[in-house]
Structures are given as C-alpha cells and as structure tokens.
Simulated scan of single mutants.
Amino acid sequence: MLTVPPDGDVARIATLRVRLAHRLARHLRTSPAVLAPATPLVSFTFDDAPVCACTVGADMLDASGAKGTFYISGGLIDTRALHWRTADEARIAALHAAGHEIGSHTYSHVFVPNLGPDAIAAESRRNDERLRTIVPGLALESFAFPYGFGSISAKRALSGLYRTSRGIVPGINVGRTDLHFLRANPLMDGHLDIEGIAGLMDAACACNGWLIFYGHDVVDDPSPYGCSPALLEAALRAASDRGIPCVSVAEGLRRSL
C-alpha cells in the first residue's frame, strides 16, 4: 500500500505499472451507461473535507442555491494535513443537514491501484460505517478515487457498493459513459481561470452535458489543490448566468439517466 500525505502529489511517484493500470481503467468501461440530461448540469465536489471547504465553500454554494458533494475519508476526520485541517463530526453532520451530499473516499485515503478488490471493498465498507456513526442511516451513493487513480478491479468492486465513482480526468459526462470513472475538471487557481470556466460551461450547454468540478480547500491563499473564494464565485456565477442547475453528484446522476 502506497503511503502519501492526503494533500501530496502522488502522480510524481506512481509506478509505470500503476500508470498503465490507471490508463486501462480510463478506457475500459465496467459500468457503461448513456447519460442524457434534459438540461446541462454542474456539480461542485470537494475531496477530503477541509474545514474551509465545509464552511466557506458550503456557505457559498448555499447562497447560490447550489448543493455539492463532499467526499470524506473517515480516518482523516478532524486531523491536520500539510495544507489544511479536515472537518470534525459536527461540521460533517451540518453539511448533510444543509442538503449537501456526503460521499465516500475510502477510510484511510489509500492509493486504490495497489489494493485488490477485497481490500478496496473492506476499506469502503469501513468508511461507510464510520460516516453512518455521524449521520445514522446515511445513504452513500457516490465515491471518489483518492488521488484520482483507479484500476479495473477497483471499479468492479466499487460498482457493488456505490452508483458512481469519480476520477480526475477532465471532460464532460454525456452520452456513453462509465459510471465508475466519471470525468471531472480541477477547480483550482493554478489550473483554471475565469475564461476556462466559461469555456467549460459553454461546452456543457452545447451538448446538454454534466460538468463536474473537483477541488479541496477554499481559501484566499489556496493550496495547489484548492481554489480561492473568488474562483468558486466565478464558477457559481457562470452557471447562474447560463441557467445551469448546480446539483450534487447523486442528483446529477438521477437527472442524467
């Protein structure tokens, strides 16, 4: 099992075997579906649940009438990482109470390509149990690959546990799609600017597609994996200007099938 800080750059140390397995997972559909939403859709997702994402980010979504998806690793709850502190149980419960979706991210934030199907299923079930101690009866429909790396065996194992798995390969989800490798675009100041956001929104409108953004912290001086409130506001405004609903991943799937 590869050990990397939750906010570390695993791409620099992934082996050739891992990269090949990830590439194969991108191209071989294990849960094919045809997505055809009646209108374009946008989903804002946040990995690891930094406190600022669960407060500043969630408040901004709420003010815009949007609901997001927060992928949480139970073993990281209320801990300190390199760039942020993760939310505690009270903040996670508040997210759910406000109508945001809680998704799974494995219990230990493990590097999925190095796990067999039994191990990834055990990690996921342990995480689900932990999250349900915070929100009893929580329905967990959505998963995100820690660090964005997947594998065929992981996708097959996850298909029995969740309705979707989200990666970090850019694109728009429409037409023939693998539900266990949803495409997502980085909402990060170092990767995307206002013009880029506008281009993605226009592309989603042109094809009636489902556009997913992912990030981590939401703070004025974000980590390399997060965004400033100004960038999030620009994305919310771009969606509003085009009349695009901003929905959770679970709701996006329901509107797309």
Rank of each mutant, 00 (worst) to 15 (best):
L24E: 02
A38V: 14
A36W: 07
T39Q: 14
V34D: 15
R17W: 14
M60T: 02
F46N: 01
R17A: 15
T45C: 10
T55P: 03
L35C: 03
P50K: 06
A25S: 12
V18N: 13
G74H: 04
R17N: 15
G75H: 06
V34K: 15
G68A: 09
A14E: 06
D47W: 14
A21N: 08
C52D: 14
L41T: 11
G68W: 10
R23P: 00
A25V: 03
A21K: 11
G65R: 09
H27D: 00
G74C: 02
S64L: 01
H22P: 00
S64D: 09
A58L: 01
S43L: 10
R19G: 06
A14G: 08
F46C: 04
M60K: 04
L28G: 02
R26K: 08
A53I: 03
G75F: 06
S31F: 07
K67N: 13
R19S: 08
S43G: 08
A25P: 03
F70H: 03
S31W: 06
D59Y: 09
R29S: 06
S43D: 07
V56H: 06
D59S: 12
R19F: 07
G75C: 04
A49M: 05
L61V: 04
T39Y: 09
R19D: 05
M60S: 05
A53S: 13
V34S: 15
T69D: 09
G68T: 07
P32S: 03
R29E: 07
T55Q: 13
D47C: 11
V18R: 12
R29N: 05
D62F: 05
T45I: 09
T39W: 10
L35K: 02
T39N: 09
L28P: 02
G57N: 04
T39G: 02
I72A: 03
F46M: 09
P32Q: 01
A21I: 00
V56M: 08
P40V: 11
P40R: 08
L16V: 12
A25Y: 04
M60L: 14
M60P: 01
K67V: 13
A21Q: 13
T39C: 09
Y71E: 02
A53T: 01
T55I: 07
A33L: 07
A21S: 11
L16A: 12
S73R: 02
Y71H: 14
S73Y: 11
L61R: 02
R29K: 09
G65V: 15
S73A: 15
V51S: 06
L35T: 04
I72D: 07
Y71G: 03
M60G: 02
P50G: 10
F70D: 01
R17H: 15
A58G: 00
A63R: 07
C54G: 08
L24S: 03
T39V: 14
T15Y: 02
L28Q: 10
A33Q: 13
P40D: 12
P37H: 10
Y71D: 02
S73I: 05
C54T: 14
F70N: 01
G75R: 05
A58N: 00
A38T: 14
P50Y: 10
I72Y: 06
V56G: 00
K67P: 01
L61N: 01
T69H: 12
D48K: 09
Y71S: 02
A14F: 06
P32G: 05
V51T: 12
G68I: 10
P50N: 09
T55L: 12
R19Q: 13
V34Q: 15
A53M: 01
L24R: 10
